[in-house]
Design a binder for these strands. Structure first.
Lengths: 220, 220
DNA sequence: AAACTGATGGAACAACGTTCCAGAGGAGAA
DNA sequence: TTCTCCTCTGGAACGTTGTTCCATCAGTTT
């Protein structure tokens, strides 16, 4: 069915604009009034295409996940392919920090199934026996989403400026000054916290999981 | 400094009541008006003790984490102690689902440091070399919080009634009916999704991580 | 007894998600 | 062509939220 008016709204248009606003101002920055303004319409018109804000956020999340998983990595070892999928998701969340909260609030909705499919295919390729597909995939997805969420939160805490180093250093020194008894472990983390790289850190987690999977399911 | 009035408000009282309300009605159910009603006062009085809702939620989160990590497990192998700490957190989030969102929004704030300390001590006991303490601990914390968040989200999706089985079954059949090409992996997950146990699933992830850590750092 | 100050609680404000509805305007029937 | 639908629009309005403001209270200090 062709649109009645050429310049009319479409659900895709609304979702795309929502993603723009979310990227710029986060979840609290996305209001139906702002969205109405950008689309040169009123709030009521948007509600004809979208049930409520929750559905809009889910649709926006799904859109981001869809493009992040657009092409499945075809070359490389199963290890490398899993790393590629995981890193693609990690980077997507880094670019759109608001998706983290949405995916944490329920990975079996919004873009969740797509993520399970993409990760699961690599688990299958890894040679994990079928009766462990569910466990293994779920664990990987939970780690990926958990790590991505933490990273997004840190990025938001540091602000849009380049003060990541600054904030990291401040937190490191704060931790180093904690009570030596009660915080005997955290105290020792300062230096490594200062000099770590987020993506490497994330991949290290994937490698731990891969090593664990292989240890529990030795390749025949 | 003694309280001016005996029946006066205290920050701890406010936080404790907030936890009750959060457990009963979730994050959206906690409003300053409801809280005022329960405490027989006005919204303004609460604001004298707490800066804003964000700080209140952080304080509530910290309180829950604090009691969840109250006593460090003293007996058992390092593996078992790590499992105990992780499971303690998992169960705490299961009882107070709203903490998941809060901890995902930034584990270096609210109760985050406590979690890092508790998990990190077990990592140290595991014999991981010091230069990998930060990476290993962070990875474990990210998995624990990610898995707990997913579990909390699922529980909320199922509702307070006992319809977990029901919802799981419905989702499983929905997945089994997906397009065999586009969803070649997800399709096969139905049965395992139906019959899995959340806590076992969570512990399986911890065991994968433990196996991976040991594979990468063979005990001398 | 008077003045001070930590603490209270209710009224008021701006902003939000959402609902409602009068009407525009293209598509099919007459 | 004219009439009548019916999808789709957009602005006004409602209830609720987080937060601010301020007149007032009740111990403590002078």
């Amino acid at each position: 069915m062709a649109p009645r008016r050429p310049e009319s709204l479409s659900r895709d248009q609304i979702v795309a604009t929502a993603v723009e606003v979310l990227d710029a101002d986060g979840e609290t920055g996305l209001t139906f009034r702002v969205l109405s303004g950008r689309l040169a319409t009123g709030p009521g018109a948007i509600y004809w295409h979208v049930a409520n804000k929750d559905e809009l956020l889910d649709a926006a999340t799904d859109a981001v996940v869809l493009t992040a998983l657009a092409e499945e990595p075809a070359s490389g070892s199963p290890h490398d392919r899993l790393r590629a999928v995981a890193l693609g998701l990690f980077d997507a969340v880094d670019e759109h920090p608001w998706v983290a909260a949405r995916l944490s609030h329920g990975a079996w909705q919004a873009g969740g199934p797509r993520i399970v499919e993409a990760v699961g295919r690599q688990v299958r390729a890894l040679g994990v026996p079928q009766h462990d597909w569910f466990v293994t995939t779920t664990v990987l997805v939970q780690y990926i989403l958990g790590a991505a969420a933490q990273n997004a939160a840190n990025a938001r805490a540091a602000g849009p400026d380049g003060d990541r180093e600054e904030m990291l250093d401040a937190m490191a020194t704060r931790w180093e000054e904690l009570d030596p008894e009660e915080w005997s472990f955290a105290r020792t983390l300062g230096d490594q916290m200062r000099h770590h790289d987020d993506r490497e850190q994330f991949l290290a987690g994937i490698d731990i999981a891969l090593a664990g999977i292989e240890a529990l399911h030795p390749p025949t």
